[in-house]
Design a protein around this nucleic acid. Structure first.
Lengths: 406, 406
DNA sequence: TTAATTCGTACGCGACCTGGACTAATTAAA
DNA sequence: TTTAATTAGTCCAGGTCGCGTACGAATTAA
């Protein structure tokens, strides 16, 4: 890997990030403690903290009387009241926006139901930029300035960002979503960025679920299709072109039904939302005609709770197929943990035993124990949360860009 | 990811690596050109080059008269005559050692046939350290000093390095190979390191095959078992515990024969060397009794060349199964290229069409085109080459460790 | 021979971390 | 209440290292 030349300025930038990261990790912490933790001298820490405080990223909490003898320390912590990140999400049946302050507290959260299937990209994006504008002004009302935005899209993106190669569920092909959004969003200190919904939902899990304790993990995020976000050491694994993690097209039944991707028996054909509903004897019509406000899925859950045998069998079958696919993923990716998100978090009580059994059967030899399985507690806008988190993480990872400005 | 504090010394270390890397990339190159390429001033480049030259890593080639007007440049290039890397390999039926100079030229290469199945680890390692000692003295005879060693082992290793969790084909379980080797190898400037044979063979491909043009790739390295080395941006992807890339246990036939890993229809059971031989009607006895010196595989190849229908069908079936498994790997890992190594490089003429067909059928939707397929041209000691390359790469990546010493 | 051009080095400057001395604020002991 | 001990944070001199400009060296073109 080609390394970048280092000069004094870069050194300072990195060290700002080091200290800010340590502050975030230890929250109220004295300069002296920071000096110990980082190995810098107290002088250096003071200078770095002063720069960070000047940018409003860090705040002095006043002296702390901790009972120890000696001069009391002045605690330093991340300033959650000045800088924020904006997360946006376009999905098949809703739009979402979410503002997170630097302490990763949710300051604004707005989900709008909207049927975006086959709607013109321009109109969808216009609606989203409207949401974004409201979010930014809501942030401003709380004294927060939005440092940047990340947008979650339900499709495969071009590596660089803005170009949506194909979002089958939206009916989009080669849509320059990045350009449209850049034009519609107000200018922000950090450039806007775009990523796959599955990847960002996975990151959401990192910051709002079990956190860094997850280690390396695969986050399954199925809605209509089935995707997976692969996170290794806190970073999303994207592969060479950003298409990694297409769990939905892992073959679990070589003789199974044909899939739009050209294969047969892809996981999506067996464990996708439509397949489950079909298996449970619920046509799309049955499902939508039911009085459930949250879509066809809650109707299914209702049947499961009632003990409907057909529904239970369909979900068990889906769980088993998911476990088979995950066994493959475990053999290839070796994660610590599997996180069940998307529809599978809601179906976990019924699907999980089958998933675990299939997983244990298929990934045994090499690793002595299969990975832990966790169920996501995040709601539908996990990707928007993850997107906003990513902005926050970027600021914490490279605060220099804001230090110069502010 | 936690970043390390940066001080002046670290800055210098990195910049040494930057300049050395640029020199390696542009081979005979003037200080002025280096200054342009890196963005450093000429002064800084001169200083860094002087340090590198002092350690014997870099050499002045004398003035170059290039026809341009102005003072002629003095070309600087990597000094291949002072520092070398040692690669070692333990495999089921041979031991190998290989010395590479900093220019990645092979200076010594030695393969010894040895049946290491169920031989005591101590004896195998004693034989290997003997090979290593001979390699180091051969290097010394050429004026080279060996900077470090990397050892390739055919099994799953503990993340940290030395501990072999399980090497089923050797019959090893929880063998502290690292400690045994550290005791037997002479002390070298860089600490010895250990890695899976599949990972190192994949790296060998990077430096001796099609090179960095491969981008991100999956290198299939089947001998008895089937493994894969995953390389992304020039680095091996190891997963959370170093067990990533277990392609051999991807399920390609859910109802297929049981595997030692607990699953059914693992790729290894369908496309492993034994399965192919069995499918071709060659018992282990037939194969070994045949007069082929290079093991059962060349007997198989002989039959294939003769047009033996049973052999052809078995290899086609294996190729197809491999393609199915690779389709899954492509969906999850999104590589640029697939490299067929191990037994599959020899069988490629017969297996490849089936592999390509299965791959194209199973990984279509998301990526518009399946990845390129390449056949490795490296021999059996690919892993030893990769291991030695890794030492060289470490020196080039962080020359500071040698600059201080020498 | 002179001008133009390019290469590499010398020397002073500035950025930034280091280290020890110093001041500040508190607790424990006298 | 005073004094010693302890801990926090700042100040200032010092060192490392990259930057920039100037300059000498070596060559080609005029």
């Amino acid at each position: 890997m080609r390394q970048a030349p280092l000069r004094h300025g870069t050194m300072r930038e990195r060290n700002l990030a080091v200290v800010l990261g340590e502050i975030a990790r230890r929250q109220p912490v004295s300069r002296a403690r920071l000096a110990e933790a980082t190995g810098f001298t107290k002088t250096t820490v003071s200078s770095l903290v002063a720069s960070l405080a000047g940018a409003g990223l860090v705040r002095e909490d006043g002296p702390v009387r901790d009972g120890e003898r000696g001069r009391p320390a002045t605690a330093v912590s991340v300033n959650g009241d000045r800088v924020a990140g904006l997360g946006l999400e376009i999905n098949v049946d809703y739009l979402a926006a979410c503002v997170l302050d630097l302490g990763r507290r949710i300051r604004h959260r707005h989900i709008v139901a909207a049927d975006n299937r086959d709607r013109a990209p321009e109109r969808v994006i216009a609606a989203l930029t409207g949401l974004a504008a409201r979010a930014i002004s809501a942030a401003g009302d709380q004294g927060l300035s939005v440092a940047g935005a990340v947008v979650a899209l339900p499709g495969t993106l071009d590596q660089g960002g803005g170009l949506v190669r194909s979002a089958p569920n939206l009916g989009w092909d080669d849509v320059a979503a990045g350009e449209l959004l850049d034009a519609g969003l107000p200018p922000l200190p950090l450039p806007a960025d775009y990523d796959n919904e599955a990847n960002l939902a996975a990151l959401g899990e990192l910051w709002f679920g079990d956190g860094p304790a997850l280690g390396s993990y695969v986050h399954v995020s199925g809605e209509i299709g089935i995707g997976a976000g692969i996170v290794v050491d806190g970073r999303v694994f994207r592969g060479a072109h950003g298409f990694a993690g297409e769990l939905g097209h892992v073959v679990v039944d070589p003789g199974g039904p044909p899939c739009a991707c050209g294969g047969r028996g892809c996981l999506e054909q067996v464990a996708g939302q439509e397949a489950i509903l079909r298996g449970a004897g619920m046509t799309a019509a049955t499902a939508t005609s039911s009085a459930s406000p949250d879509g066809p899925l809650s109707a299914l859950v209702a049947r499961l709770e009632r003990g409907d045998e057909r529904a239970l069998a369909a979900v068990r079958r889906a769980g088993e197929a998911l476990g088979q696919a995950l066994a493959t993923a475990v053999n290839l990716l070796d994660p610590d943990t599997i996180v069940l998100g998307g529809i599978f978090s809601g179906l976990a009580p019924w699907a999980r035993p089958a998933t675990e059994a299939a997983l244990a059967g298929g990934a045994g030899l090499v690793r002595r124990s299969p990975p832990r399985i966790t169920v996501s507690r995040l709601g539908g806008d996990a990707a928007a949360l993850g997107a906003a988190s990513l902005v926050v993480e970027r600021v914490l990872d490279d605060p220099a860009r804001l230090v110069i400005r502010c």
